[in-house]
Design a protein around this nucleic acid. Structure first.
Lengths: 251, 251
DNA sequence: CGTAGCTTTGATTGTTTTCAACACATGTGG
DNA sequence: CCACATGTGTTGAAAACAATCAAAGCTACG
């Protein structure tokens, strides 16, 4: 059933507010978006590669990933999405998907129809701008991934991803950067980093032995943030969050 | 001096029209953008890494690239830009650059002030949408680069880039996909593909011996498009051009 | 408690990098 | 017009990094 889901939508609103200032009416428009909840089990595809979609996926709980796939079935993840993220906001204006979306863990998503998003964007130009900015933030991460895949060692890549996720989780209010929920298999990690699962395994072992990282249950702990950031050459600027004025919302 | 440069701007308008329908008034607004011409010699940086900019770079002639850089100076290109492209449209709403722009060949650029772009975007919501779509098209290429860097061999990567550039040049009316101007050094190619110049050299030799590619002066010739596309697993869908309805402009 | 998926291990192979050197073209100033 | 510097393309040998293949433990879940 399609109806208003204020609590999950306030997560998304929070994400928008980290990068754009929105008037009260605009905030209400976001919270009033009609949408539909769904649960997806781990390892299932939420959007199939090449699907034509008419709604966006807002992650409410869990972890999702955008991916592309080669002819032989090998996958490359192109983005990780945490609660509050819309995985495919770009599909609103470019509905021919050349990607797929996969649930990495059991994930709750909100399907928000394109029609709803188009409506609020045209009624509130400030929202159109905020959506544009949101897309740009995703693209900025994508550009950083290109650098990591193109020029960094396995260890540096993994370190960078961990730093990225730590800061994002912290910003989203979902944990501390030094310890946060990150329930990902080494296979999935390999698909994100352009490596094999075996090599990810050995690299993680080395990092663990070096007291840099520990996966504990569904959580990851970063024991030495500074050293990890140095190995990763991590500079959070690319995450494009407005400093200071992080207004939070209580819906 | 800042003034109207209709001819170069019509290149950009053409690019917008390949993905968005624009009313007459919106087209005129684009052509009327105030801007400033500049020439940059090959290998010079147009925008320094981390610069705060207040204008966008529209490529009029030549070849430019967006890049990021590691601490040791090694570069990774994250996008190639041909005439008609705006290298950093995203900077309009995210002016803190976490990237640089480099002239690969001697390049003519048009500096279009953010203020101008913001003005036309707010006066014409259709343009704001077209800008968003343009950003998304760039991001879609970026996602494809992630896949190439993460999961493909040197030869497949290079083949994919050549196919991508061929189709883009053809769409922009700047050549045929099988033969187009591409005046890039093997060093620059290496920076784009996440390889070393030495390995690019050897890979190109193999492809040349295989009658796939030939660099002749400042142009490249793709002698067997189908085979090249197969090696690259190239599917042009990610370039997100509206099929058929490619309206052209005469300014 | 059995099973499927995940992590770990070892041995081997293959791709790509690194380092060093040389050939070749291009453009510049004397 | 030549001498020279610089950047670009090319080659070879060695080393490093990551992939591949195969198999064995481990864990979580039904």
């Amino acid at each position: 059933m399609t109806h208003s889901n204020q609590k999950p939508l306030s997560l998304f609103l929070g994400r928008l507010l980290r990068r754009s200032e929105l008037a009260q009416a605009e905030r209400q428009a976001v919270l009033g978006l009609k949408s539909q909840v769904a649960q997806v089990r781990a390892h299932r595809d939420i959007v199939l590669l090449g699907d034509q979609v008419n709604s966006c996926c807002l992650v409410v709980d869990g972890l999702a990933a955008r991916f592309d796939q080669l002819a032989d079935g090998r996958r490359q993840l192109t983005a990780l999405h945490i609660p509050g993220d819309i995985c495919d906001l770009q599909s609103v204006v470019a509905p021919v998907a050349s990607w797929g979306i996969e649930a990495l863990t059991t994930t709750t998503v909100l399907h928000v129809p394109h029609a709803e998003l188009k409506r609020v964007a045209s009624e509130h130009p400030g929202l159109a701008l905020a959506f544009w900015r949101d897309t740009i933030a995703d693209a900025s991460i994508l550009a950083k991934w290109v650098v990591n895949l193109g020029r960094k060692s396995a260890q540096s890549r993994i370190a960078h991803l961990l730093c990225e996720m730590g800061v994002r989780m912290e910003q989203a209010g979902l944990g501390r950067r030094a310890a946060f929920a990150f329930d990902i298999t080494q296979n999935q990690l390999a698909d994100a980093m352009g490596l094999t699962a075996v090599h990810v395994n050995r690299t993680l072992q080395a990092m663990r032995g070096d007291a840099l990282v520990r996966f504990a249950g569904r959580t990851v702990e970063l024991h030495d943030w500074d050293r990890l950031a140095r190995i990763a050459e991590f500079d959070p600027a690319f995450l494009q969050v407005m400093r200071g004025e992080r207004e939070l919302v209580d819906a």
